[in-house]
Design a protein around this nucleic acid. Structure first.
Lengths: 161, 161
DNA sequence: GCAATAAGTATGAAAATTCATATAATTGCG
DNA sequence: CGCAATTATATGAATTTTCATACTTATTGC
């Protein structure tokens, strides 16, 4: 088995067989990566790291979120988010406020400048998404989204997950 | 607008509105993350980091791949992959061999122990995937995969991507 | 056949992320 | 009430990852 170390032909087909190329977790990761590459480059040009953009986007939808939930939603580990929020505060994008009702909690609010930036980027994201979806045929776009939502749903309410 | 910093109700709906919760790039990232969490934990228990598992999985399908392509497929930046491969070599999972026809290239081959491990993990992954897909109704699973493949396809052969 | 350019990999310093844990506040309950 | 368990965030050291670039080998155009 490969004892003689044959050199594979690099010009050949690009993964239309084998395990990986049709493995759901791989397809999800690869699709996520590929779909995001362009917009993430835009985000970096705007001077933000991807996690920072995620925070701004979420606060755009719902300002004053607490750290733990923001971390969960933004797919960022908690202690990292704490550091990121502190940096964003130093840059004047957000402010942190202790929650009066539960003083363990820290709530994060957009500043004026943070809100301006988030609105700009959300607009950009919407436009980019429209372009992306327009490349899919007919109902494919809607079906894809629906399938992802269903998957997320199944994963959330699942004891064995 | 939030001028008085009202405290949001944390018990309320979980993102069924707003921009983020139906944004394609978010759905992809969140679904990928959520779907992978369980299996990635398994990978770590087996003593591997996720990128190492990806390398093993790909070599399982096609041994003797070169660094650059392995990096592309495994969603790992090249210089990082070089380091990972060196570590995997030290652990006896793979060997590196200069390509005789093009001496710039380095090809990576599974060792016996690497092959054993990759086969075990691929079997585990198949089983895990089956469990996951079985939670989706009827043709949903196949449709989701097909949609992802289509999306990847569109992204690959796209000048504006 | 010789520059010049490109392709493939490696390297080291800088930046980031993770991990374990500390600190502080709240909740549950006997 | 009082104490144990739980929740929320922060912190620092260790590890990972990135970034720019060096280095080597191939390819291309004259």
């Amino acid at each position: 088995m490969q004892a003689d170390h044959d050199i594979p032909d690099d010009q050949q087909r690009d993964g239309t067989e084998g395990f990986v190329s049709s493995y759901l977790l791989y397809l999800l990761a690869a699709a996520s990566e590929a779909a995001s590459a362009q917009f993430h480059a835009h985000v970096r040009k705007a001077g933000l790291r991807v996690p920072e953009w995620r925070v701004l986007a979420w606060l755009h939808d719902r300002d004053g979120e607490m750290i733990t939930r923001l971390a969960l939603i933004s797919l960022i580990e908690q202690s990292r988010l704490t550091k990121i929020i502190i940096q964003m505060e130093e840059r004047g994008l957000v402010t942190r406020q202790g929650d009066k009702a539960d003083r363990r909690r820290v709530r994060v609010w957009l500043t004026k400048s943070g809100r301006d930036l988030s609105q700009q980027l959300v607009a950009d994201a919407r436009q980019h998404e429209t372009g992306l979806l327009s490349k899919l045929e007919g109902g494919d776009a809607a079906r894809l989204k629906q399938a992802l939502i269903t998957l997320l749903d199944v994963l959330e309410n699942d004891s064995t997950a």
